[in-house]
Design a binder for these strands. Structure first.
Lengths: 243, 243
DNA sequence: ATGTAGACTCTACAGTGTAGCGGTGAGACC
DNA sequence: GGTCTCACCGCTACACTGTAGAGTCTACAT
């Protein structure tokens, strides 16, 4: 559906460029950036064409120059947000595990930076089949496949490794966001109150974990998960490590 | 927000029960079931109060007797769908790994049975903090914690194991849904065509994997992932296995 | 018979995405 | 210069959304 992030309709009137436009001409990136800002501030449900138009000081209908529909706009902002991620590549003489770790943390940081956008980032691509996705979205996939092939996986193995890694990453971040509470100050008390409500007989474990649940060190959690995943993958590589 | 799945407003007029109602009285479960059917058939965006009302042959406003808002309705259908899952419990003398495997496959089957609902199942709970969730949703959590404690984890460890397992599971299923294509027959050709579009220089790996991408054996993929996860967790248990 | 309280039904409102319209203004041709 | 053409712009309008609020009705209590 959506092309690359930047794809402007060329104005046909060549003199249009000479003329002074109202303020400045609007680029697709501008629109997407504003949309992301709006979602960050007030959530996805607050994103409407009219509001976005208002935020940009433009007629809402103008937005359809830059996104063919709201669906397309949503795809666009997801693509835009994800494009901030560096494409993972093992540096010269670098460590593939370290690369995966860095990539995972970068992804997590991005999701935490845009918590309102995260659900979209995870589920939006469901709409468009893999083969039809914009190139920008597929580049990280290719890079990861390349990484795995580089350490000895065959094609099939690389694909499976990718799916395991990416699946884990998505899930882990979703999980962290789920346990997150808007106001971190009240969270402890609120959590405690919430857990008090649970019948003791039915939920002994959960109630006992109140303390642990209150502090969620996402980065650490991610790393510990990666320990497991990477340990599972390591034996299948031909790198310098074990068999 | 939402209580348990079943919580009907008691009609105050006691004679109401004696009277013959138009057709039959509507239960919350009926409403949720119809909503799920609607979503399954035409997607989430097709679910509107009016349409749901029409599907039930009732005034749309009546639905607010059974769900206080559309948000609540959405939470309700997620809860309803998830309630079909059996709460995972290790049977007498049973194998905890087998239990986790079974649970994972059950979850996957549920997601595949309601692909349009899956995004909601994954992301809806983000709205309500853990402590405020309906009890039904927390029961599997408690059960899994209990399972992990049962095989030797302490509280902290059980929580981490739960997060790793659940995160992996969510991600894996999301992943599978992402690579799924509506029409399985055309999928091979479509995929091939889609991949042809990719520049060879930039996407050699991806293009080479066309064959592998066409056939996605989700169950197998899930099992292989579980191999890795369980292998990572096993050493930390005190069960009969290795150290 | 009358009062009343609750459930039911319907209307109305503010808001949504977006098709379609007439006006405008710039470039192209005679 | 005059005229034609055609893409763009701002706008209105339409079908639809969730849901507050105002009747309407019915069943029970007095």
């Amino acid at each position: 559906m959506a092309g690359d992030v930047e794809r402007e309709p060329e104005p046909v009137g060549t003199a249009a460029r000479r003329r002074v436009r109202r303020r400045t001409t609007l680029s697709r990136t501008d629109v997407l950036r504003a949309a992301v800002a709006l979602v960050d501030a007030d959530g996805v449900e607050a994103l409407s064409m009219r509001r976005l138009g208002a935020a940009l000081g433009r007629d809402p209908m103008r937005l359809y120059r830059h996104a063919s529909s709201k669906e397309d706009l949503l795809d666009g902002i997801v693509e835009f947000a994800l494009s901030e991620l560096p494409v993972p590549a093992v540096p010269e003489g670098g460590d593939w595990e370290e690369t995966l770790r860095r990539n995972a943390h970068a992804f997590r940081a991005l999701a935490l930076a845009h918590p309102n956008l995260a659900p979209l980032m995870m589920t939006r691509p469901l709409a468009t089949p893999l083969a039809m996705r914009p190139l920008g979205t597929l580049r990280p996939l290719e890079a990861l496949l390349d990484l795995f092939v580089g350490v000895g996986f065959d094609g099939r193995g690389a694909l499976h490794a990718y799916r395991l890694y990416m699946g884990f990453l998505y899930g882990q971040v979703l999980n962290e966001l789920q346990e997150r509470v808007p106001a971190p100050d009240e969270s402890k008390d609120l959590l405690w109150l919430g857990l008090q409500r649970l019948p003791v007989r039915e939920f002994p474990r959960l109630r006992a974990l109140a303390g642990e649940l209150a502090v969620y060190d996402g980065a650490r959690e991610l790393d510990e998960g990666l320990d497991v995943i990477l340990a599972g993958l390591r034996p299948r590589t031909t790198s310098v490590g074990d068999s």
